[in-house]
């Protein structure tokens, strides 16, 4: 790891100021991804601004029923938060299925949003990778791509976003609050991460001088009936091949509300809007679940090793919706 200069910011303004004033600077919080990438020589910042001292570690109920999650709330604390467990179980589950207890104790809400892909070729600095070194090509296209994207990929990059938490946030219509030089703004979670297009080196729509301060969950009463299913190569401590976050409200056999998002399938957490359209207002049965899943995956494209993900995603969507429909509002 290249050495770097280190500073510890005590408030958001100072942090933003420091990142604007210094070349090649990055914010550091839990370190569970950035330190890893620095050790692999993928990230080589000259300056690190430690933001863990900022007073952003609270989970607060908002008037109107929403919840604000400070950017420095650690993953384990968020998953164990009673409000989240009761009102947004999909979020607790998604976090708990990610990484390990040790990592969840370090990783923060803001940091989780900033995770970078686990593509093998992104990690191997001897390989070609447009995300790591723009213009070099993509070794995953013709290489081992079993873990890669089936939706929204480009010829320049077929990497996936590795987060579980973000998939739940996508289903929950979360918004990301950020602060930059003199400007604060909110970004809907589905617009926070990008598709690769021809600039896969840019993961998110966050500006270089912007700092995530909190994530807001809207009041979503039916999210009490929500869940996360993660399909992976071992029982625990593995990234998703496919994951599904969903919330469902069924009234008199008809789908009143549904939120559906997929993980492990795209460069960003994939909000399944096509499926939601099919589902909303329809009779809640297996047939419509299958149709909705198929509709969402119509645009999917498989590569040499990952075509199975298309069927796997469909099956997992159906399975999750069936479970939520049968459990109704009981949860």
């Amino acid at each position: 790891m290249k050495n770097f200069a280190y500073a510890r910011a005590q408030d958001a303004d100072t942090a933003v100021q420091l990142i604007t004033q210094n070349q090649n600077a990055k914010f550091l919080s839990g370190g569970t991804n950035l330190v890893d990438l620095m050790r692999e020589n993928i990230e080589q910042p000259d300056h690190l601004i430690d933001v863990t001292g900022l007073p952003l570690a609270q989970v607060e109920e908002l008037p109107g029923g929403g919840v604000s999650i400070g950017a420095l709330v650690r993953n384990s604390h968020l998953a164990a938060n009673q409000i989240i467990r009761e009102r947004y179980p999909v979020l607790s589950q998604a976090i708990l299925m990610g990484a390990s207890a040790q990592i969840r104790n370090m990783a923060t809400t803001g940091g989780n949003l900033m995770q970078r892909t686990r593509c093998y070729y992104f990690y191997d600095t001897d390989a070609r990778c447009n995300k790591r070194e723009p213009g070099t090509g993509c070794d995953a296209l013709e290489g081992f791509n079993r873990i890669h994207a089936i939706l929204g990929a480009s010829d320049d990059c077929i990497a996936t976003h590795p987060s579980d938490m973000c998939v739940a946030l996508a289903a929950l219509d979360a918004t990301v609050h950020v602060t930059g030089t003199g400007v604060e703004r909110t970004i809907p979670i589905v617009e926070f991460h990008r598709l690769p297009e021809d600039t896969p080196q840019i993961d998110t729509n966050l500006q270089p001088d912007e700092l995530i301060t909190s994530v807001e969950l809207p009041a979503l009463p039916f999210a009490r009936n929500s869940m996360y299913r993660k399909v992976r190569d071992r029982a625990s401590y593995a990234f998703a091949l496919v994951s599904v976050a969903a919330a469902l409200e069924v009234e008199d056999g008809t789908i009143k509300n549904v939120r559906l998002a997929l993980g492990g399938v795209a460069h960003k957490p994939w909000r399944a809007t096509e499926a939601e359209k099919v589902l909303t207002g329809a009779k809640a049965d297996e047939e419509i679940f299958k149709r909705a899943a198929a509709e969402e995956l119509k645009a999917a494209r498989g590569y040499k090793h990952n075509s199975f993900k298309i069927e796997l995603a469909e099956r997992t969507i159906v399975s999750v919706l069936k479970t939520l429909a049968s459990e109704g509002g009981a949860r």
Partner: peptide, 27 residues
Amino acid sequence: CNQGACGACTVLVDNERINSCFALAVQ
């Protein structure tokens, strides 16, 4: 592993477990 992937480096910080390989000492 030094990759946050095995847990051999687990220590307790304020009684919580973390992977010390991902922790910068200065933090």
